[in-house]
């Protein structure tokens, strides 16, 4: 099998979608935050918290879906902390976000160690199993790639539609979009800027938490250190890549998933001749190139990272 043939295998595409799933959730989450004018660099830590709390809930006997709920709640709790610091208090969004990431990741590892002081191999849970969509999963290649995924992946795609609907079809979505463009327009129409932003950051962080929980509840079956491994930072870039639009962000996540799945296979193909780190690097390099191309036309939400203080000129 050569490098080109790999592109036509169903397993490559299935893997691409699997890899993209957590990114889709978290990118949508970051997108909602940024649309409301708040950069949430807590994403990496919030994903870790989601991964851990979701996994712990299931390990303690909760159902998988309860685990997802726990991940969402834990995510939005850290989102609330971030929002309280940067929205009413107007602190630096960069510094606060990195602080949240450090706090949330460290706290997850700390609690993990408290609960499992002496483990040699990570404890395991029974994760989500692939659910074959009747009829559709029998289509050659496409069926295997798209319709033999776990329920969480289907949920990720549904989330894209839901977030699009929310942002572009509901009054609240309009308020979120406007608050990220010109908060005084929201204020002048009698809506409280602070509450809209806090709510948006909490909702976005809940999605990030779910994105993290995909790793422990669907992709793997245990929680281990550094498992988010920079996925949060990728999502920050994907939001820019997607020009703050859910559909384009989905495309970006899939593209990254494809690069990543492809490099894994190339590693095996070229094993020994080229250091494997070169392949590990590939998706990031390609993402940066794609980002440079796309972000030349990117229209940032005007009020992104600008704190709003009522009545200030």
């Amino acid at each position: 099998m050569d490098a080109v043939e790999i592109l036509f295998t169903a397993s490559l595409w299935a893997a691409a979608i699997r890899i993209a799933s957590p990114l889709i959730f978290a990118t949508l989450g970051e997108l909602i935050c940024e649309r409301a004018g708040v950069l949430n660099l807590g994403i990496e830590g919030i994903m870790t918290v989601g991964a851990f709390s979701g996994w712990l809930t299931v390990y303690m006997g909760g159902s998988l879906w309860l685990g997802i709920l726990a991940a969402a709640v834990a995510g939005s709790a850290f989102g609330l902390l971030h929002a309280l610091l940067v929205v009413p208090l107007g602190l630096s969004q960069h510094v606060t976000g990195i602080g949240i990431t450090l706090l949330a990741s460290s706290l997850s590892y700390y609690v993990y160690r408290l609960v499992f002081p002496e483990v040699t191999s990570p404890p395991k849970i029974e994760p989500f199993q692939p659910w074959n969509v009747p009829v559709l999963s029998d289509i050659p290649v496409i069926g295997e790639a798209l319709f033999r995924q776990t329920p969480l992946t289907y949920l990720a795609f549904a989330a894209v539609l839901l977030v699009s609907w929310f942002l572009y079809r509901t009054p609240m979505g309009l308020a979120v979009r406007t608050v990220g463009e010109n908060p005084s327009a929201v204020e002048a129409q009698g809506i409280d800027v602070t509450w809209v932003r806090i709510a948006a950051v909490m909702a976005g962080s809940a999605l990030m938490g779910i994105g993290g929980s995909f790793l422990t509840l669907s992709a793997f079956n245990s929680f281990f250190f550094d498992m988010v491994n920079g996925r949060g930072w990728i999502c920050i870039a994907l939001v820019v890549f997607g020009s703050w639009r859910p559909g384009k962000a989905l495309l970006g996540a899939l593209l990254f998933g494809l690069f990543d799945a492809y490099q894994l296979r190339l590693q095996q193909l070229a094993g020994g001749y080229v250091p494997y780190q070169v392949f590990l690097m590939l998706p990031f390099v390609l993402s940066i190139i794609a980002l440079i191309v796309m972000s030349r036309r990117a229209a940032y939400p005007r009020a992104l990272m600008v704190p709003y203080r009522k009545g200030e000129r």
Partner: peptide, 18 residues
């Protein structure tokens, strides 16, 4: 107090619905 990237209609109906 208008959001430049939104449409005229968006700007007008903002906050007029629950």
């Amino acid at each position: 107090t208008l959001a430049d990237n939104l449409t005229v209609l968006d700007n007008i109906i903002l906050g007029t619905e629950p």
